[in-house]
Design a protein around this nucleic acid. Structure first.
Length: 581
RNA sequence: GCGCCCGUAGCUCAGUCGGAUAGAGCAUCGGAUUCCUAAUCCGGGGGCCACAGGUUCGAAUCCUGUCGGGCGCACCA
């Protein structure tokens, strides 16, 4: 086995060699198409350690029936001493059993690789930029941002484990009209901090208390310099000041979830650098932007709608319903106009881009994908670009929907959430379902049932392992690689489960689905708990067996490696591997 | 009206590039603790994989249509 190879890949190579041999013999035609051949652990463990569909997939090409071809393959495979049995089953599956030595070696491999076990090189040499969260800098983070934040962060770690170089990026929307509102709201709080009675917060301003400290900070910074100045004097200053403060709040909210971005990209800076102008010029040159009139929107009535000529991007050429404006009628950039330039900026430093968006932005996916495709292909390098939509989380408390409105200042913040249930529970809960399905998050249930939360189940397995190692230490026993041959079928079952970890990481990374790791860890923890409980019925099956330091050493070594795999997996998810519960 | 996502056990959800008898947790019923952490384990009951066609050696999985739920359809962000 080579350095970074999984046990499954190793046997896939052996099978490949057999198929090549059969081509040489003429049983198979030369250059058979093996694209659909797989080597996988069968779902039902009684079928063996590995199964391949090779005979069924290739029978047609070989102009024979699957079971006959399987027989040929089996004869070759049986010559391998690492394969103790090769059987044909059902319509032509080949089930393999591996010598226990193969599994024992895998256990040693876990120990040798340690924290690197599960890492892979499939993504080596590719830089991936993943943009996630990107919440508007107008207030603290609320629960609506949480799922995308956690999924994006776990995906970033997952891709790192697969060998990619990853940039975690946050796009700060500090150029739009909502920042004016923020600045005015902050100015109001500033006057309040200087002793003015501001009364009720007027309609159209952000009423949240989180702006009170911003007002105080502004009072400390500026004194009464901007109290009675005209708005145009202070607005730009308050914009920058308030955004800076809000980003501090957001960064500390993200830190509560264990999230840290590498790059915070400012929309205002992008515009100051004239990036959108450059993109527009290029698009006009290639007839992808033209001046035209928007159609009246369908399915929604707008009272003051009127036809205006605007610069439009030809997104209909790429399957969108409508061409999309890149500038507003006042000449300023639309969100989309700036966003396409922003994606070009990201593409300059990465080989692939991923955006994590909330499902409420699904309608804008086509246009941005179209723009990135047009710009990156046009400029010579097609950049793979994936937008992952994270579906809405319905927040409940005891079955009743929790109303959230940023405008009224009434929303559940991430800080509240983490304080109530803890970072690990929030992260694991968000990661134990696929992101494209909607989910309910019921505070009452999560808190009440926190002891049944799967995250504790996994952490408990890790804590138990730590506990047994502490206990062993007290009895002068320690994990030992010397006598692993003493391990039997119960232990091998556990090793087989652990050995799937690298495969799971690769598959999850390829599919860009971090939730698979969470489910895998649950299964691994279940296998360990089951193994542990064997000792309840039969003292000979405990990890520490008083009469045999050798067997104890081997089992402690096994437990240590299971702990290692759980730790590595939880590391991808950003969940703590606690040593005690 | 159009676009995107979802529909699997009473509930919450997994299900590998299409693979063998569709799996977990919760709930329910029955068991396991003088003994390494019972926040654990073992077992029972519970299924028209929304529905109807199609593709093929084989479909929960792929394609088409229907029904149901969510999100979106502004020069907002």
């Amino acid at each position: 086995m080579s350095e970074n190879q999984t046990i499954y890949a190793a046997f896939a190579e052996k099978l490949d060699a057999v198929l090549s041999a059969l081509e040489m013999e003429g049983t198979l035609p030369p250059e058979t198409n093996r694209a659909n051949v797989s080597v996988e652990p069968p779902r039902d463990p009684s079928h063996g350690d590995l199964a391949t569909n090779a005979a069924m997939v290739l029978a047609k090409q070989a102009k024979t029936n699957p079971r006959a071809l399987a027989q040929q393959i089996v004869e070759h495979l049986q010559r391998d001493p690492a394969i103790t049995s090769a059987e044909i089953a059902g319509p032509g599956f080949i089930n393999l059993r591996l010598a226990s030595q193969s599994w024992i070696e895998e256990l040693s491999a876990i120990a040798a690789k340690g924290d690197d076990y599960g890492k892979s090189a499939v993504g080596a040499g590719t830089t991936v930029n993943i943009e996630y969260v990107s919440a508007n800098p107008t207030g603290p983070m609320h629960m609506g941002h949480c799922r995308g934040a956690v999924v994006g962060d776990a995906l970033a770690s997952l891709l790192e484990h697969a060998g990619h170089e990853v940039t975690r990026e946050y796009y700060v929307n500090d150029a739009g009209g909502q920042v004016d509102t923020l600045a005015r709201s902050a100015h109001l709080r500033y006057r309040e901090a200087l002793g003015e009675d501001i009364g009720a917060i007027p309609e159209g301003m952000y009423p949240g208390d989180y702006l009170v400290p911003v007002g105080k900070a502004a009072a400390d910074e500026f004194g009464n310099r901007f109290v009675s100045e005209p708005e145009e004097e202070w607005l730009p200053i308050f914009r920058a000041f308030a955004v800076e403060r809000m980003m501090d709040v957001i960064r500390s909210d993200l830190a509560l979830l264990g999230i840290e971005h590498d790059v915070f990209a400012s929309e205002a800076a992008l515009q100051a650098a004239k990036k959108p102008e450059a993109a527009e010029a290029w698009l006009r040159e290639h007839d992808l932007v033209y001046d035209g009139v928007l159609e009246k929107p369908k399915g929604k009535t707008i009272e003051d709608w009127e036809a205006v000529e605007l610069p439009l991007f030809r997104s209909t050429k790429f399957g969108d319903d409508q061409d999309r404006p890149i500038r507003k009628s006042d000449g300023k950039w639309t969100y989309f106009g700036a966003d396409l330039a922003y994606h070009m900026q990201k593409a300059e430093a990465a080989d692939a881009l991923i955006d994590i968006w909330g499902a409420d932005h699904a309608g804008t996916v086509k246009r941005i994908k179209a723009a990135v495709a047009a710009l990156s292909e046009g400029q010579g390098t097609a950049i793979p670009f994936d937008v992952k939509l994270v579906q809405m989380v319905q927040l409940l408390r005891g079955g009743e929907p929790v109303k959230m409105s940023k405008r009224s200042g009434n929303f559940v913040t991430i800080a509240d959430m983490v304080e109530e249930v803890g970072k690990d529970v929030v992260r694991f809960t968000m990661l134990t379902r696929k992101p494209e399905a909607q989910m309910d998050f019921d505070f009452a249930k999560v808190i009440e049932a926190s002891k049944d939360n799967p995250v504790f189940y996994v952490q408990y397995a890790h804590a138990r392992i730590c506990s047994i190692l502490r206990k062993a230490g007290a009895e002068n026993l320690s994990p030992s690689e010397e006598s692993l041959y003493l391990l039997g079928e119960d232990e091998l079952t556990l090793i087989r489960q652990a050995a799937q970890f690298p495969r799971e990481v690769e598959a999850a990374a390829r599919a860009r689905e971090p939730h698979r790791i969470a489910f895998y860890l649950y299964d691994l923890a279940a296998a360990f708990h089951a193994f542990w409980n064997l000792g309840n019925d039969n003292a000979q099956k405990r990890i520490i067996v008083a009469q045999s330091p050798e067997l104890s050493g081997a089992r402690l070594f096994l437990a240590t490696q299971i702990g290692q795999v759980i730790r590595n997996g939880l590391g991808i998810l950003g969940v703590e591997a606690v040593e005690e519960l």
